[in-house]
Design a protein around this nucleic acid. Structure first.
Lengths: 337, 337
DNA sequence: CTGAAAGCGCTAACAT
DNA sequence: ATGTTAGCGCTTTCAG
């Protein structure tokens, strides 16, 4: 390993001169030739500042952690891309952790925040945990930003415009002429599910469609939950003609189950999903979907966290721009007869 | 932040005594009551060893980096699970980087290895890079393990049993009675594609099926590559009755394109894919697939890297246990007439 | 049996 | 305009 001392020796100057020049210290009072000599020496020796030395001195690691419960979730890829891009631009690297343990003393949080491995943490809590269950995790006001969840006034949070997303999806079915709708939604404890329900209901209310009798399942966002939801739909007394699925993975499961039960999509049942992804265009039939901005959410989470670290500002942001956008494919059509 | 000094003060002992007790120093010569007092103090103060201090002193971070070119690739989730599990067991945390830049001075490598943020690196090179293109990256013999790629003698590598995987898939089609086969494969520069081709050819040879005239595409592992491959297949003079797709994402794209072109699966074309995943069971028809052990590969990569760090041992491992396993679903059938 | 002290690589306040 | 030095939190000899 090559250290500042090595560079200093080669350039024939002091260690601190090297440190100042290389880190662009504004109070630099070094002659141009000296500066050049130092830079040349660093280049020739291929000097790289040691992370631990810097972190120990400055009490900053320039690392952001992100903790998610489940890498399989389709949101993860886009989200992670956004996080990585924004982090790189802000001079941070990203450390990924996985945990479905929301307790504040969970191993991950201890290792990451407790041991000072990261400056801040982006946390996607496990879907089945109610927001207030987070209380303990947040009581010391740590540098944490929640995604898809909120804890008012404590830490920052970033949400997607779930209400608008569900509303757009629902309006699409209503526009096609559907009146008997179902919502295949996330777990009862999920905040996003609550918000998507709200959008669903608003759209119905605006269209003057009575809500009563409409089916809503709260089984979760995974493919097998979509499958189970289809069973519920088939068992319903008045079978819906159109269904809004709150997550693309669940929609894929639902579609597969529909096939197996001989339910034709879209002839017997129109399906629209909230959250678009490459998988949605490769199903049969290709899924009509509302794009949710997970990439933007990742970016916003980093921005919010960095602002928190730099200035202590706690922000709650909802990604409304660009708005959720409908892509009509082949899983939706007017109700037959 | 609570430091060793704080704990020492509270317990009324020296800093070094605390350090020894808390890190379980084997040369511990401390009376039982003292030890208890120290442990109690640490607990009460909620002491956590500072990462930077420890890393600076010991020149070890207990962090493993993993660099992949593309999070969308279906292999990523399972792989990452395996990496995380094995890393945790070995006392490491995982830092995720993304890069499609194979140059040795690529930003990522500098930041991770060069600055000492990680003790070692697991690298999945971008698919289009030939193994020998890695030369420069590896010339200083850094603590790196390659996955799905090799650089003989330099660094460790971990491969799946691609040959066996492709062989099993091909044999399945042969057993069903197919004789005109096609292989939808990865990029020409991809090592895994080369190995999967080998398995394909071995199976044909064993069955006494002449190889000439059989179609092989080398377009890549992404969904759109599978779509393009189907076009090639349709344009072939003697259209194959069965196709082995070397990657599940490509298979999903191929399936979607087949639908659009009115090609019935499996009646007109049987499709089997190398690499199983949850997406394969939710397509229509559900994909017959050969499971590849990405989870095991992730674990093996960590084990290999840790061995390298602990003892300098460089190993090349191929995951053969458990062997690739065929799951027959509905995308394959005997050729019609 | 326990403590004092050096030093890992870096930054920054202070000297020269 | 450049150099000296203290000290971040930790481990590890070496003295007592």
């Amino acid at each position: 390993m090559v250290t500042l001392a090595d560079v200093a020796a080669r350039a024939g100057v002091s260690i601190s001169a090297v440190s100042k020049v290389l880190s662009g210290d504004p109070s630099l009072r070094v002659t141009e030739p000296t500066r050049e000599r130092i830079k040349a020496a660093a280049r020739e020796l291929n000097y790289r500042p040691n992370f631990a030395g810097r972190a120990l001195k400055s009490a900053r690691t320039q690392v952001l952690g992100i903790v998610v419960p489940d890498l399989t979730n389709a949101l993860f890829t886009d989200l992670m891309d956004g996080v990585e891009d924004a982090a790189r631009e802000a001079g941070y690297v990203v450390l990924l952790g996985r945990s479905d343990d929301p307790r504040p003393d969970a191993e991950v949080y201890q290792r990451l925040l407790g041991e000072g491995r990261v400056d801040g943490l982006i946390v996607q809590v496990v879907d089945g945990v109610a927001p207030d269950g987070l209380g303990a995790l947040l009581e010391n006001n740590p540098p944490v930003v929640l995604i898809n969840s909120v804890a008012p006034g404590q830490v920052g949070s970033v949400l997607l415009d779930d209400v608008a997303g569900a509303r757009v999806a629902t309006e699409h079915l209503l526009d096609l002429g559907h009146r008997r709708l179902a919502l295949v939604n996330g777990l009862p404890t999920s905040l996003t599910a609550e918000r998507r329900r709200q959008g669903f209901r608003e759209a119905l209310a605006d269209a003057g469609v009575p809500r009563r009798g409409l089916l809503e399942t709260r089984l979760g966002y995974r493919p097998e939950n979509g499958r189970a939801a289809l069973e519920e739909i088939l068992a319903a007394p008045r079978r819906p003609t159109g269904v809004v699925v709150a997550n693309v993975n669940a929609a894929i499961g639902l579609l597969a189950a529909a096939r197996e039960h001989g339910v034709r999509v879209p002839e017997d049942l129109s399906v629209v999903t909230v959250h678009d992804s490459w998988t949605a265009e490769n199903t049969w039939p290709p899924l009509t979907a509302v794009s949710m901005r997970f990439y933007a959410m990742g970016r916003a989470a980093v921005d919010t966290l960095v602002a928190r670290l730099d200035s202590g500002t706690v922000r709650d942001v909802v990604i409304t721009d660009p708005p959720p956008q409908l892509t009509v494919r082949e899983s939706t059509a007017p109700p037959s007869a």
